[in-house]
């Protein structure tokens, strides 16, 4: 039954956000907050809530497959930008794992935590596979990755303005590089091409980081 709460909150937030585009009304953020309050209020535990919401999470896989349809529709735009896309993703992935490794050393984080944080920019299923062999905790990895996704979903339009990223494709690359699927869900709302490039950046970054993360790990902790 609690899946109805999730759906109603999301639809309500969409309506509110289309009328008044305040940050608090960003649909995913608003619904997550509402559901957390709902759990606190009714005393339902998370496991039960998650079980009842499998209807929604099971649609995530087909939605990602649907990104393939979007890519086909934007095929020409992708083709003419393939070089810049791969360069931007490779540099972004290296910058990400390098920064995490350096900051983890500077902040003297325990190595279990550092390993858990290393793949923080990529989609959860890959991130877990990357952090676990390095001694990371999958639970920490998924909480951080999803938290970043929520941040990206909420703030990416603001960040785009800060950094003067105006190109619709570049906006997608930036969003997909840090906030993977949850950010891509927002990118699709901004522009079809932003959604496509966000989805592409998410997928390619995920695969590239499978190689860059262990490499950086061996440099800093090997």
């Amino acid at each position: 039954m609690s899946s109805l709460v999730t759906i109603c909150l999301f639809l309500l937030a969409r309506l509110l956000h289309s009328r008044k585009p305040y940050l608090i009304f960003v649909p995913v953020f608003f619904s997550v907050l509402g559901c957390i309050l709902f759990l606190k209020g009714t005393g339902m535990n998370f496991t039960q809530y998650f079980e009842e919401n499998k209807v929604l999470t099971s649609l995530l896989g087909p939605a990602v497959v649907a990104l393939g349809v979007l890519m086909y529709k934007q095929m020409d735009a992708i083709k003419s930008r393939l070089g810049p896309l791969l360069i931007a993703i490779a540099c972004g992935s290296l910058a990400s794992v390098f920064l995490v490794a350096v900051l983890a050393v500077v902040l003297k984080l325990p190595s279990e935590l550092a390993a858990s944080l290393l793949p923080l920019g990529i989609t959860t299923p890959i991130a877990i596979e990357v952090s676990e062999p390095l001694g990371g905790d999958p639970a920490i990895t998924s909480v951080v990755v999803i938290g970043i996704g929520l941040l990206g979903n909420m703030f990416s339009p603001i960040w785009l303005r800060w950094f003067r990223i105006t190109d619709v494709g570049a906006s997608g690359v930036a969003i997909g590089m840090v906030s993977h699927g949850i950010g891509t869900a927002r990118a699709i709302q901004l522009h079809e091409m932003t959604g496509v490039f966000s989805g592409l950046a998410m997928c390619i970054n995920g695969v590239v980081t499978v190689f860059t993360a262990p490499l950086m790990w061996s440099l800093f902790y090997g």
């Binding site: 999301f10 997550v32 957390i36 929604l56 999470t57 995530l60 905790d137 999803i146 938290g147």
Partner: peptide
């Protein structure tokens, strides 16, 4: 794709389960 964001909500709610570390 229009409702993609909605499918992530249960995962987002999972943040309340964050560990001690």
């Amino acid at each position: 794709l229009t409702f993609m964001g909605m499918f992530y909500i249960p995962y987002g709610v999972g943040i309340v389960e964050s560990g001690t570390l």
